Simulated assay, not measured.
Amino acid sequence: MMQEFWNSFLASFTLTIASEFGDKTFLTTSIFSLKYPRWLVFISSMFALTTMNIVSLFLGKITANIPTYIIETISIILFGLFGIKMIFDGYNMKQDMNVDLKQMEKIIENEIVTNKKKNDDQIQLSTILLSAKQNGGLQWAVGFGSFLGNFFTNSIAILCSTIVSEIISIRTVQIIGGFTFIFCSIFKYYYS
């Protein structure tokens, strides 16, 4: 039981960090923390992400009636596809994308206005799939891992917004996140 808890928790925590660190939510939180009170930005962001995770956990509970092998197969395929997409997006990013915070703000605003298709649903689907796989009430381990992953990434976004925007390449974070998803897909394939 304890091993299952740690597997669920670590999978959720790792995938949340891989998905959220360096994405639009992370960047938006960083930018808002430079303009508005940090505590308010942090609480607002955590409230939104926690609400999203709770909904994802309930959807996972609803889909728990689907046979396990189908959930396993879908999660392996989706994690692999998410990883490939993140790596592809990372390689196609401009090298100097994080040089100027004002420029980054404009890029994010343009993406929010022009993107009608949601590309940010990786963590929701991951949480739903991980939650659906859990038996015996271990969905809360997935939720707790996801919550702590969001807490970690939001804390970094808030506390280190200026430093992160100058030191860490968003392109690099995107590519590392992609490889993390692919690793999780391979891990699930061999150890499911």
Rank of each mutant, 00 (worst) to 15 (best):
I31L: 14
F32H: 01
S33R: 01
K35C: 09
K35M: 15
P37S: 09
R38N: 09
W39V: 15
V41P: 09
F42L: 13
I43N: 06
S44Q: 06
S45H: 12
M46I: 15
F47G: 09
A48L: 08
A48G: 13
A48E: 01
A48M: 13
T51R: 07
M52E: 08
M52V: 10
N53T: 13
V55N: 03
S56E: 11
S56K: 04
S56Q: 10
S56G: 14
L57K: 00
L57M: 14
L57Q: 07
F58D: 03
L59G: 11
G60R: 04
I62S: 02
A64N: 12
N65F: 15
I66F: 08
I66Y: 02
P67A: 11
P67M: 15
P67Q: 11
T68D: 05
I71Q: 03
I74M: 03
S75Y: 00
I76C: 07
I76P: 06
L78N: 04
L78T: 06
G80A: 08
F82I: 06
F82W: 05
F82M: 13
G83S: 04
G83Q: 00
I84A: 09
K85A: 08
K85V: 08
I87Q: 01
F88T: 01
D89N: 03
G90F: 07
G90C: 03
Y91N: 06
N92G: 03
M93N: 02
K94V: 01
K94I: 05
Q95M: 05
D96Y: 02
D96K: 06
N98D: 02
V99I: 13
V99H: 10
D100L: 10
K102N: 02
Q103M: 09
M104D: 00
K106N: 08
K106C: 02
I107E: 04
I108H: 01
N110R: 09
N110F: 05
E111T: 04
I112T: 10
N115G: 06
K116N: 07
K116H: 09
K118W: 13
K118V: 15
N119V: 14
D120M: 11
Q122D: 10
I123W: 10
Q124I: 15
L125C: 11
S126D: 12
L129K: 15
A132P: 01
A132G: 13
N135Q: 14
G136A: 14
G136P: 05
G137S: 09
L138P: 01
W140D: 04
W140A: 14
A141K: 07
V142E: 08
V142C: 06
G143E: 09
G143M: 08
F144R: 01
F144H: 02
F147H: 04
F147Q: 06
G149C: 12
G149M: 11
N150F: 10
N150I: 05
N150A: 14
T153V: 11
S155M: 05
I158W: 04
S161F: 07
